[in-house]
Design a protein around this nucleic acid. Structure first.
Length: 869
RNA sequence: GGGCGAUUAGCUCAGCUGGGAGAGCGCCGCCUCGACAAGGCGGAGGUCACUGGUUCGAGCCCAGUAUCGCCCACCA
């Protein structure tokens, strides 16, 4: 065994062993209440692994491995998402750049087959990357949201919802994304701040007596104006309500109407109403029974009956310039001003949203939302951290219809056929006979992902998988898709299975770039998890100054990356910090070397068993017990950073820093009880650590004499960590540790060489069992006969007493005295504080007795220590 | 406009139900001591953003202020 743990030598081999072992592929048996299942958030089939995946995989794999240790039959459902827009866009780009062709040129069927080919080529990439992380989803049972079987479930859901009246088709104002040339949902729209010119335009009154001025940033939409609205209480316009204005350029008559929506203090207080191209105007138009003509087509160019011929086909931007020029010529532009406001952009294509009236499929959500609200309010589904509950409930509380149709090709085609004669056929199967044509649109990707937890298990068939693993237990994801995905899974799960799809929703942290920006490939702030694992270029975002080379990542290994990410993420958004990964690397290395110490010294015949002999054995067993509880509770309550740090504290701060040092003499003597106990401690420690750092623990486990099978197979924590902790022994060891630290600090202060063994006298009770440790680790020769005090050069204060150090050339007496006096005044100050507190009647009267008692005990101990000094 | 979160050591962050401020990294000093130099030991370093309040006692609870971040929302 090497002195340094090299993850690269170990991890691939072990990952393969896990794959071959079948541990992640359960038989579909038993009851979902006893079984444990998680459905992975399916990554985009053409995606590559990023930090969010790495963290989320660490989370889910930790949960899954813990469940295995608890003896549960576990299923981690794996699969990928066809990701409609994203994938289609990617393939279209590829077609254009490599073949100079477009999907339109290829035709629908050919294009789809190209996407499948693309999927064959790149689809397994992210799955391979997930393997490298050490994740153990069921690789033998991979799903895809565009598989035939999955597709059947999607169509069935559509048809059912249609028949129940939830899904309907309507001409409605939608968010049109000119980039992907499709409608998109409200959730795919980002608001961005933009500076536009606000034009004040005079609309002449039909009466000929003057004009009314409206303000707009989109003059080109005026061609679709149907009215002018003012606030009914606006005194300026009272007399104009009911009058008629003339739409410039076109000459159409516009009624001046009153509507409470109009603000009196913005613009001119008069609003042009364009229901065909503005959501608010659409509402107002509906209230007043107005038509909603359209002047902008799906290609973002001017079209429609209302458009004068000279403007037809112009892009909206060009049309704006031309129309403003014409208005200026007519003398109707009263004013222009800079105006900064937020406007919608597609977060798919980045294009500015063009609100358009369009014939689309919608899903009514309010009724479906009700039970989905109830199960969260009642606690059947819990969010972690808990604050996301409110976010979810607020959104569900005023949920709006969902536009589910997309004008794409890569997706589940809507199962609706239209006949020449006007008949409509909605069914999972095509109708017989001629004259039918299928709706060309496909469903929003999130429509199919919404079925993920049950469609992956074979629903609508009552498959053994569905019976055994649905409902699932935990859904772990990022907060950006709470509405897009989580909410829809809950609604659709309840509607179609009658059960909650999962009982806990864990919302993991977002890991930001080291400089606090969003991690993004295009910004150059992304960090590739695999570069961290296997070593690779450290991105420029790490550079201390611009242009400086940030060097390379060492090959930290998957364990380090997993632990590091978990330790970073405490439910809060955090900056990526490489030190945490490095800290984890040290942890794995430490554990590795600790195991070398133990395994190199025990016989092959030794079997792990707790056979405590000395106080430190009881102490470490108690600490182990505590660590097992702490790590377990932390994982169970989704506090992964706490779990990671609790583990670290135990392995580093207790096991390696102290126990191994204390036990060394007995280990070197070859004491069989010590060896057995050490093996027990080591076995239990790797078991405890395994969900968080699976590779190194598996590797160590394989070297432990008598170990059987794979640790990942679900070895349970052996509960009997030697029964009840021996409180007395624990206390003895604690004070021994404090004493050793005091001695070391004193040696340092007194400038004593590390190699010097000093003669000393112990003057303190309670070290009978541990005095040898004080001597060895404090590098003292401790006599206990009480002689030799005359030669005392210094006194070291330790809990419950003092150690006298005999005069020696190695001791700087002056420095030692300074140290002693410093300690003395420290003690005096603390005594004073404790006395003051106890003298406070309020404290003694109102504080809990236990607290007061603890304070008294502490004071006594301090006084004793000072006394001894 | 509404909501949520953050503000603790030089840096990145812990600190769960109120009872003497912690970690990792960085910094200083010592150490090739039979697991580990990616190591060990010791140390320095903090008015817990600010102002009030509740309490015997506040980093933690309450009110307000400031700064930063995120989410939701239909002001032309």
């Amino acid at each position: 065994m090497k002195t340094r743990y090299e993850p690269a030598d170990v991890e691939p081999r072990i990952a393969q062993a896990w794959l071959d072992s079948g541990i992640s592929h359960p038989e579909p048996e038993g009851d979902p209440a006893e079984n444990y299942s998680i459905a992975i958030p399916p990554p985009n089939v053409t995606g590559v692994l990023h930090m969010g995946h790495a963290l989320n995989n660490a989370v889910q794999d930790t949960l899954i491995r813990r469940a295995r240790q608890q003896g549960k039959r576990t299923k981690w459902i794996l699969g990928t998402d066809h990701a409609g827009i994203a994938t289609q866009t990617q393939v279209e780009k590829e077609l254009l750049s490599r073949l100079g062709t477009s999907r339109e040129e290829l035709g629908r069927e050919e294009f789809i087959s190209r996407v499948w080919a693309w999927r064959e080529r790149y689809g397994s990439q992210i799955i391979e990357q997930i393997k490298r992380l050490g994740s153990t989803p069921d690789f033998s049972d991979e799903r895809f949201t565009f598989d035939d079987r999955y597709g059947e479930a999607v169509l069935k859901v559509f048809v059912d919802l249609y028949e129940k009246g939830y899904i309907y088709r309507d001409r409605y104002l939608v968010n049109w994304d000119p980039g992907s040339r499709s409608a998109i949902s409200d959730l795919e729209v980002d608001e961005r701040e933009v500076t536009d010119t606000l034009f004040y335009i005079d609309y002449p009154l039909a009466s000929g007596s003057g004009s009314i001025t409206v303000a707009t940033v989109r003059p080109e939409t005026m061609l679709a104006d149907v009215a002018i609205a003012v606030n009914p209480d606006d005194e300026r316009y009272q007399r104009l309500i009911g009058e008629t204005a003339i739409l410039p350029i076109v000459g159409r008559k516009l009624k001046i109407i009153a509507d409470g929506y109009v603000k009196t203090d913005f613009g001119t207080g008069a609003l042009k109403i364009t229901p065909g191209h503005d959501p608010n105007d659409f509402e107002i138009g509906n209230r007043h029974g107005l038509p909603h003509p359209s002047v902008i087509g799906e290609d973002g160019c001017m079209e429609g009956e209302a458009v004068p011929e000279r403007y037809l086909g112009l892009k909206t931007g060009d049309a704006r310039i031309a129309i403003v020029a014409e208005l200026a010529e007519l003398g109707l532009i009263r004013r222009r001003e800079e105006y900064t406001h937020t406007v919608p952009f597609s977060n798919r294509s980045g294009a500015r949203i063009e609100p358009l009236i369009s014939l689309q499929w919608f899903m009514r959500m309010d009724e479906l939302a009700e039970p989905a609200v109830d199960v969260v309010k009642s606690g059947q589904i819990k969010f972690h951290p808990e604050r996301w509950t409110k976010v979810y409930l607020d959104w569900m509380g005023n949920i709006r219809p969902w536009c589910v149709s997309r004008q794409l090709w890569w997706g589940h085609q809507i199962p609706v056929w239209y006949h020449d004669d006007g008949r409509v056929h909605v069914d999972t199967k095509a109708p017989d006979g001629p004259g039918w044509e299928r709706d060309p649109d496909v469903l929003d990707t999130w429509f199919s992902s919404g079925l993920w937890p049950f469609a992956t298990l074979g629903w609508p068939q009552r498959t053994p998988e569905l019976k055994a693993f649905y409902p699932t237990d935990v859904l772990s994801t990022g907060r950006d898709i709470i509405f897009l995905w989580v909410a829809r899974m809950i609604m659709l799960g309840l509607e179609f299975t009658g059960e909650i799809p999962f009982s806990d929703v864990y919302i993991h942290s977002i890991i930001q770039a080291p400089d606090g920006r969003r991690m993004s490939k295009s910004l150059g702030t992304g960090i590739d998890p695999l570069a961290l694992i296997d070593g690779g270029e450290r991105p420029p975002v790490f550079a201390k100054s611009a242009g400086e080379d940030a060097g390379e990542f060492p090959a930290y290994g998957a364990d380090a990356v997993r632990w590091g990410l978990l330790a970073m993420s405490s439910g809060q958004d955090v900056r990526f910090n490489e030190e945490k990964v490095s800290q984890a690397q040290q942890l794995t290395n430490k554990l590795w070397n600790a195991s070398r110490l133990v395994l190199g010294r025990v016989d092959a015949g030794t079997r792990a068993e707790a056979r405590p002999q000395a106080p430190e054995d009881h102490w470490i067993l108690a600490r182990l017990q505590r660590a097992v509880a702490a790590v377990g509770e932390a994982i169970d309550s989704f506090e992964f950073s706490r779990a990671a740090l609790s583990l670290y504290d135990f392995v580093y701060g207790e096991l390696c820093d102290w126990y191994l040092e204390l036990v060394k003499p007995r280990l070197y003597e070859g004491d069989p009880d010590t060896a057995a106990t050490l093996l027990h401690i080591l076995t239990e420690t790797v078991t405890l650590a395994h969900p968080l750092i699976p590779f190194v623990t598996e590797e160590i486990y394989a070297h432990i004499p008598g170990s059987e099978g794979l640790l990942a197979g679900g070895r349970a924590q052996s509960g009997a960590s030697a029964g009840n902790p021996d409180a007395l022994a624990e206390h003895e060891v604690e004070r021994a540790i404090e004493a050793i630290q005091a001695i070391r600090a004193w040696r340092d202060a007194a400038d004593v060489k590390a190699s010097a063994i000093l003669e000393a006298q112990l003057r303190a009770e309670g070290y009978e069992e541990t005095v040898a440790h004080l001597a060895r680790l404090g590098r003292l020769e401790i006599g206990v006969d009480g002689d030799g005090l005359d030669g005392s050069a210094a006194a070291i204060a330790i809990p419950g007493g003092v150690i006298h150090v005999l005069a020696s050339a190695d001791v700087d007496v002056e420095a030692a005295t300074r140290k002693r006096e410093a300690k003395r005044s420290e003690l005096e100050a603390e005594i004073k504080r404790a006395e003051g507190k106890l003298a406070n009647q309020g404290f003694t009267a109102k504080a809990p007795p236990a607290v007061v008692e603890a304070e008294r005990t502490k004071l006594e101990a301090l006084r004793a220590e000072l006394e001894a000094l």
